[in-house]
Nucleic acid binder design. Structure first.
Length: 195
DNA sequence: TTCCCGATTGTA
DNA sequence: ACAATCGGGAAC
């Protein structure tokens, strides 16, 4: 029996509902230098009622994309050094997004190695800022963009991820709402973040 | 306009 | 354990 996937449906869910459902999807990044493909293996959800979320105090210039209709990208600059990539979810007006924390390299591995200046395939995208480095994202230009074949798009999972394949845990690197179980990863996957 | 600190990473 | 290094946003 064929499994059907409905991306639009997932992107219209709240971030906590969408985050586990995005595991296994393949993130495809098109660049002039070639195509990069990563299997999403770790995500975190951030929503408006969540004090740890950038959207918690309402929309600002930076966080405006989080309040758009699901299906856009939200890219932010952090620690004066790094960029992180989110997929915006939910209806227009609700400030929520799913942080893509780690990916398993599927295609464009040599390009990622070049972007990251390392060779170990397990460390190419096993962290939110490592993942953007691997994808060649060095600015916030993509923030607010709609998912598109021309930049970044999502393709259905090659193998189905079921509830029992998913590990739920607390989010990394935050100081508020630390007990919320909003981090999702594929159990036993070798490409999740080290922390 | 000043000031604090972060959804991280790589090195010491 | 800690520096790197910047801009968002709260506070003054």
């Amino acid at each position: 029996m064929k499994t059907s996937y409905n991306l639009t449906k997932i992107l219209n869910l709240s971030a906590p509902e969408a985050a586990p459902r995005l595991l296994g999807w393949e993130l495809v990044r098109s660049t002039p230098k070639g195509e990069i493909r990563l299997k999403i293996v770790e995500t975190e959800a951030y929503h408006q009622a969540d004090p740890a979320s950038h959207s918690h105090r309402g929309a600002t210039t930076r966080t405006a994309p989080m309040f758009e209709q699901g299906g856009r990208l939200y890219v932010y600059f952090i620690y004066g050094v790094h960029y992180c990539l989110n997929i915006v979810t939910g209806p227009k007006g609700s400030g929520e997004a799913v942080l893509i924390r780690a990916g398993e390299p599927i295609d464009g591995v040599e390009l990622m190695r070049k972007n990251r200046s390392i060779t170990d395939i397990h460390k190419l995208a096993n962290g939110p800022a490592k993942l953007t480095q691997a994808l060649g994202i060095n600015d916030t230009k993509l923030s607010g963009e709609v998912l598109s074949e021309l930049s970044i798009s999502l393709k259905p999972p090659a193998t189905k991820i079921t509830r029992s394949d998913i590990l739920v845990s607390s989010r990394i690197g935050i100081k508020r709402a630390v007990d919320e179980l909003l981090r999702f990863s594929i159990k036993d996957n070798k490409y999740i973040s080290g922390v």
